[in-house]
Simulated assay, not measured.
Amino acid sequence: MKNPVLVLSSVLLLSAFSCKKSSDGNKSIIVEENVEKTVSNDNGKIDSTFTDAKTEKTADTQVQEITERYVGTDGTSALVTFKNSDKEHTISIRSNNKTIVLPQKEAWAKGGIYADHDIEVKSEGDNITITQGNNVIELKKARGQ
């Protein structure tokens, strides 16, 4: 008889002193997410693209991430994320459960060059070229998803 009473009193004691969770969150970080899917009619064909954009603002920094799906000439798919902040500009390419992240070395209006070690990525408009030694991989922004 004493065991159930002891257990019950312990549960009541713990629940009386348990922490309250606040749903207010961290007010100093503002996250804006925008998932956009556009469909346009070009020469009688339906063309769709997918873009996922996220902007995170704090008191002293702003980080913007744009993720788009690209397709290789062999049909493989890759997710490409452009990350821009006050401190860094990087490109992240994920395919076949592997990810490479490279810092930006050069930039212009519609593209840039990202490089680290022996890998170089050139982004121009809807095209991305990955070069590592003698290997060249061409990616194009996905259409018709």
Rank of each mutant, 00 (worst) to 15 (best):
T49G: 02
I119V: 14
A59Y: 02
D60G: 00
K122I: 02
F82G: 04
E106L: 10
K122S: 06
N3S: 12
S9L: 14
I100F: 08
N84H: 02
S40P: 05
F82Q: 11
G72A: 12
K140G: 09
I130H: 05
E65I: 07
I93T: 04
V121E: 13
T61G: 00
I66Y: 02
N3P: 07
N26Y: 11
K57C: 07
L13E: 04
K27C: 01
D116I: 01
T51G: 04
H89R: 00
N96D: 11
S85E: 07
K45H: 02
Q104H: 10
R143Q: 06
Q104Y: 09
Y70F: 15
H117G: 08
K83I: 13
S18Y: 10
L13D: 02
L139W: 12
K140L: 10
K37D: 00
F17I: 15
L13Y: 06
K20A: 14
Q132N: 12
D118Y: 11
S48C: 02
Q64E: 14
T76F: 05
K54P: 06
V136F: 10
V31L: 13
A107D: 14
A78R: 02
N96S: 11
D24A: 07
K122E: 05
A59R: 06
G72I: 01
T76V: 09
N26R: 11
T55K: 05
K110D: 08
I130A: 09
L12Y: 08
G75F: 09
K54I: 14
D126N: 11
L14V: 06
R69N: 07
E88F: 05
T61K: 01
T61I: 11
A142P: 07
D116E: 14
T55P: 08
K140F: 08
G133N: 11
N134A: 09
V11L: 07
I128V: 11
F17T: 15
V5L: 13
I137G: 05
D52G: 02
A59C: 01
R143N: 06
A142V: 06
I93E: 05
I119C: 07
L13P: 03
I93L: 07
K45M: 02
T58N: 04
G25T: 12
V39E: 08
H117R: 15
G72T: 12
S123A: 10
K21Y: 03
P4Y: 13
I100T: 15
S18D: 15
D126S: 06
G112R: 01
T38I: 07
K83H: 05
T81A: 09
D116N: 12
S77E: 15
T131N: 12
T90G: 01
I30L: 13
N43Y: 01
V7H: 10
T49C: 00
